[in-house]
Amino acid sequence: MRSTEEFAWVTLTTNDNYGLGALVLAHSLKRAGTAHQLAVLVTPTVSEAMRDRLKDVYNVVQEVNVLDSQDAANLALLARPELGVTFTKLHCWRLVQFEKCVFLDADTLVLKNCDELFEREELSAAPDVSWPDCFNSGVFVFTPSVDTFTKITEFAVQNGSFDGGDQGLLNQYFGDWATADIKKHLPFVYNVTAYASYCYLPAFKQFRDMIKILHFAGKLKPWLIQFNSQTKTAATPNEYAHAQDLIQHWWTIFCDNVHQSLTDNMITITITITIPITR
């Protein structure tokens, strides 16, 4: 495998709440013993205080604008404002200081070392649980390239996204993923959805020890779950009872590695509103 400086794990945060997810994600990667760089894209809505915390654990913290910058690609998207959030994620292809990257949504949690993903080619991803002939864009291997960024952006302007987000767009652009090369199909254990519907709950229980990356896709994020700071336990909803220990793991990393680095003001802004924590 190449020099660790040539490879990077990449995530994106658009506000301070997702910043909490990005911080826990970074520490989960470090706990798993990754040898590679960490990079996070931030939008102008992320506070300076949160950026400072991100700089403590990420090698690269890079601001990206959704529609405000004056480059041609952004200006083209002014005609399609609904693609703004989607476009932000596409900025990951601009990290050309790296040879290869793996994108992780900020609501993922790395449970085991996954550095072997950098042996995969673009665009490698795991099937989406709701439609396995599409990949889930919460975890994917890509090769940074300004040319690719431009092509995907132009494609977005011309074709939009069938689901209004980055997943629909990327599945349209990399439209042969399901059929062209099985080597680009990551095992599901690299992107397991925390919410296990009845159709795969037995499999979740059977293969849970093999899970490498857990994805808190959907509305319920770990940082929105009530947490008792005295007992150090998360009030896991019944529909997530099967993943209670994994949600607890997210909070353990938060308590051990993140909480003490936050200022009182940051805790008030980002946590107390939705997560009652006593000090």
Rank of each mutant, 00 (worst) to 15 (best):
Y173D: 11
A126N: 11
N136M: 03
W177G: 13
V139Y: 00
N171S: 12
F135K: 03
V192W: 15
L169Y: 04
A156C: 12
D181P: 10
G175N: 14
K184I: 05
Q167M: 14
L123T: 03
S161T: 09
G165E: 05
T148W: 09
V141Q: 05
N159H: 15
A178N: 10
N191Y: 07
T153L: 10
Y190D: 00
D147F: 06
D147L: 07
K183I: 04
F142C: 00
G165A: 11
Q172L: 14
W131M: 00
V157E: 09
A194F: 01
W177I: 01
A156D: 01
A180S: 15
K151F: 06
V146C: 05
A194L: 04
F188M: 07
C134Q: 12
L169H: 07
W131I: 00
L169W: 02
F149R: 04
A178S: 14
G175A: 09
N171M: 10
Y195S: 01
F135D: 03
K183T: 15
A156S: 14
I152Q: 07
V129F: 09
V141K: 00
L169D: 08
A156W: 01
S130E: 12
F174S: 08
G164M: 02
G168S: 08
H185D: 01
P144H: 06
G138P: 10
T179I: 14
F142P: 00
A125F: 08
G175H: 15
Y195M: 09
D176C: 08
F142S: 00
V189A: 11
P187C: 04
Q158W: 03
T148E: 15
V141C: 02
Q158D: 13
A156L: 09
Q167R: 10
A178E: 03
L186A: 09
G165K: 13
T150M: 01
W177Q: 11
G164D: 05
D163Y: 07
I182V: 13
T143F: 01
S130C: 08
G164L: 03
F174D: 06
F140N: 07
F142T: 00
G165W: 08
L170K: 11
L123Y: 15
Y195W: 12
T148D: 14
S137Q: 10
V146G: 02
S145M: 08
N136T: 06
A180G: 07
S161K: 11
A180L: 14
D128T: 04
L170Q: 10
F188L: 09
F142Y: 11
G138Q: 10
Q158R: 15
D133Q: 13
P127H: 02
C134N: 05
I152C: 06
N136Y: 05
N136S: 13
Q172P: 06
N191S: 14
F162P: 01
Q172I: 02
D128Y: 14
F142W: 10
P127M: 06
I152Y: 04
V141P: 05
S130I: 01
L123G: 00
Q167K: 12
